[in-house]
Amino acid sequence: MKTTSILKTSGILMMSWTASLILISLSALNAQTDSTKNDDAKAPYRKNIIKINLGAALALKSYNFSYERLLSRKISFVGGYNTMSENKVSELPLMKKVIDQAFDEDDEVKNDLDRIKVANTAYNGEFRFYLGRQPGARGAYFAIYGRYVDTKINYQYQFEGNTKTYDIPIKGNFKGFAGGILMGTQYIISRRVVIDVYFGGHYGKTKGDADGLVDLSSMSAQEKSELKDDLESIATINDKQYLTATVSNDGVHGKVNGPLIGLRAGFSLGIAF
């Protein structure tokens, strides 16, 4: 009986010691994890980044500069400025590749694009929300942004009349605001060099005017009506008309009020400080 009692007592003590060791080990592991999290939270990080979008410069001859400022460990604000000087649409590197692949040499769309020149200025304001444990502007993120766009277009428009072809140089200026979302990943190498890759899109409204001052006094009333219909068809989407045109002896005038739809993509290189 005494031996059995001693064995039971010894077994209880062993179980108590084992349970105690397990609890101590778990406590140590939790403490280590908490310490790692605290170390990550307290790790120093740079709060300012300046970047240039190399992708836009190479693909569209568009120069985009941005400044990013950390507002907290994982939230930042990005202010951006984009400018593109006047270029033929068909001569932009990305568009040139698309046109060569999609259209024949004598395709009407290709010929139209050869006659369009565009210039663009845009301003972006963006809030980024970074994911993951590491502090600072690094890792995967999603963002919401607003974009103001000012676009100028020169279009050497041609209209085939009954007896002659009319060349109408149309100049337009359109301004709009849009909101959008994007996703991306930002890497910080050697605590200084920044690589930012992102993709997103926006939707909004744009308004503007377009004028083509030229002598159309020789046009018949029917030709003027056909010219008006032809111009308005340029900005008609799903039977919804976004361009209202008027034709007179002095030329053409158009008012645009429609959607502003666009994509944003970038491969940016920057410096953190």
Rank of each mutant, 00 (worst) to 15 (best):
S66F: 04
K207C: 06
I261H: 02
G251E: 02
Y203T: 06
N120P: 00
E160A: 14
S233Q: 15
D250F: 05
G176L: 06
L70F: 02
H253I: 04
I153Q: 09
N87D: 07
Y81N: 03
I168G: 05
Q186W: 09
T121L: 06
V193S: 03
I49D: 06
I234T: 08
R147M: 05
A137P: 00
N111E: 12
G125T: 04
Q134N: 08
D100G: 10
F159M: 08
G270N: 03
E105T: 13
L23C: 08
I237E: 08
R192A: 10
L260M: 06
M183C: 11
N48M: 11
N38F: 04
H253M: 09
I237D: 03
E68L: 09
N120L: 06
E126I: 13
V214K: 10
K47Y: 02
A178M: 03
V252M: 05
R73W: 01
G179I: 14
F199Y: 14
V149E: 07
N53T: 03
T3P: 01
A56Y: 11
S190F: 13
I170G: 09
K61D: 13
T246E: 11
A245F: 09
S190V: 03
E91G: 00
S90Y: 08
K164N: 08
D196A: 11
D229A: 10
D112Q: 11
Q186N: 14
A265M: 15
A235K: 08
D40L: 15
A122R: 07
K240G: 00
D196C: 05
I261K: 07
Y155K: 05
N87K: 13
K47L: 06
F65M: 07
L60P: 01
F142R: 01
Y187E: 00
D106E: 08
K42Y: 00
L54Y: 12
T244L: 02
N64C: 01
L71Y: 04
K2G: 01
V78K: 02
N120S: 10
K255C: 01
R69H: 14
F199P: 00
G139P: 00
K164I: 06
K42N: 12
D211C: 01
